[in-house]
Nucleic acid binder design. Structure first.
Lengths: 226, 226
DNA sequence: GCGCCGCGTGACGCCCGCGTCACCACAACG
DNA sequence: CGTTGTGGTGACGCGGGCGTCACGCGGCGC
């Protein structure tokens, strides 16, 4: 999920953005001033920042500079100032885009999408690979290798393994697995899990009868152990 | 030196931009229509495109889509239309920024600097040539060689192969292929994929019946294996 | 005007992934 | 010892996804 940090001291703006963004599946962090913004940007690891220039505690360009000191994540500036020197200053300070208030929500969302898309294709992608002693799961390529040979998985098998691998080491409840792989209407079909876990073990575990990586937690769920 | 491609059919705009840009050390290419723009973008290797939406020969979003088919270079849209749906359409088509006419020259220059700065930090792009044991795909030249002879591909075939080759080794979902090649409205037409994958295999695979490089992952998508 | 080529569509057979069922293992409990 | 509930395994039928061929249409060039 894309995480957006909204920095603004006007509650109604924050509220409007929070509603619109979370309705579209974004995760929203908010900060009412520059200091909080800088702290949250470091802690919360947002994917993009929406920044109002008129903050109570510090100048907007200083916030931009503070961010640009250590990250290149996209910054969209929001401002009531239509003066072109303000725009130039903000953009040259390192902002990616500049939207003047009052702004159209759909335009802002489109610019947000553009900024996120850009940074997604630009940035070096992380290494989504989970390894165990006997097999390797490549989340990005949707591929599983066992002894350097590709193991063919069906869509359902892969969906199941993917959820477990993305939560490696953690216990995943049966309900969550069923919801993520089959859909919310199948939360009670625990039998599916037994069948497909068995198939995964047969394909991946060295001793399917004594699983070492795809573990059952009786009555609770399953755990992927790297 | 940074190279800017200016696409506009109004001579006075082109002239104003040329003067201002070259005075600031930019190299300037110009195109009066969409077709010329697409050709120049491929030939001239500009670092950034400034694109007027009101072109005589084709729709602006089609120009954006034509560029985005093979490159991620920054596109700044220039338009007299202030309607927010125009902005949203252009940005979602792949534009990086949207400036409404009349515009302040210094603001445009600042947005230009921001776009260039961003793409500079994005890092050098990788090798646009993908090789397999039996054929070679040159993404930049849009050519395919098999046994050192060029294989003629239709536009649709090429579009399909291009998406797969750019994600070499990774599984590409059917939806994504359909969206990238035919458009978002065709996400369900999986039959297209079967037909055109068969054609690609017939032209490129040594044994079309036993594909080694254009692999099907049943129910999930396709994978290009170098 | 004619022919060619690229594109989308329809029909058809094959096969495999899916869900279901029956059965067994095992542990907990009275 | 029987009952109950949870988990694992093998077998099986069905539907849908896949590949393939053939055809009609429209555009473009000769």
């Amino acid at each position: 999920m894309t995480k957006v940090l909204v920095v603004d001291d006007e509650p109604q703006i924050v509220r409007a953005l929070r509603i619109n963004l979370s309705a579209r599946g974004y995760e929203v962090l908010t900060a009412p001033d520059g200091a909080t913004a800088l702290r949250l940007a470091a802690d919360g690891k947002p994917d993009v920042v929406v920044l109002d220039l008129g903050l109570p505690d510090m100048d907007g360009t200083d916030v931009i500079a503070g961010l640009r000191g250590w990250t290149t994540l996209p910054i969209i500036v929001l401002s009531a100032r239509t003066d072109s020197t303000d725009k130039v200053d903000a953009l040259d300070a390192g902002a990616d885009d500049y939207v003047t208030k009052p702004f159209g929500m759909d335009e802002l969302l489109a610019r947000l999408r553009a900024a996120v898309r850009r940074s997604a294709t630009a940035g070096p992608e992380d290494e989504p690979i989970v390894k165990t002693a006997s097999f390797t799961v490549d989340l990005a390529a949707k591929r599983v290798l066992k002894d350097d040979v590709e193991v063919h998985l069906t869509p359902t098998e892969w969906g199941l393994l993917e959820v477990l691998a993305r939560n490696a080491g953690k216990l995943v409840a049966q309900k969550q697995l069923l919801r993520d792989v089959w859909g919310p209407a199948y939360e009670k079909e625990t039998h599916y899990l037994r069948v497909y876990l068995a198939q995964l073990r047969r394909k991946l575990e060295p001793e399917p009868a004594r699983p070492r990586h795809l573990l059952t937690e009786p009555g609770m769920g399953y755990r992927f152990e790297p």
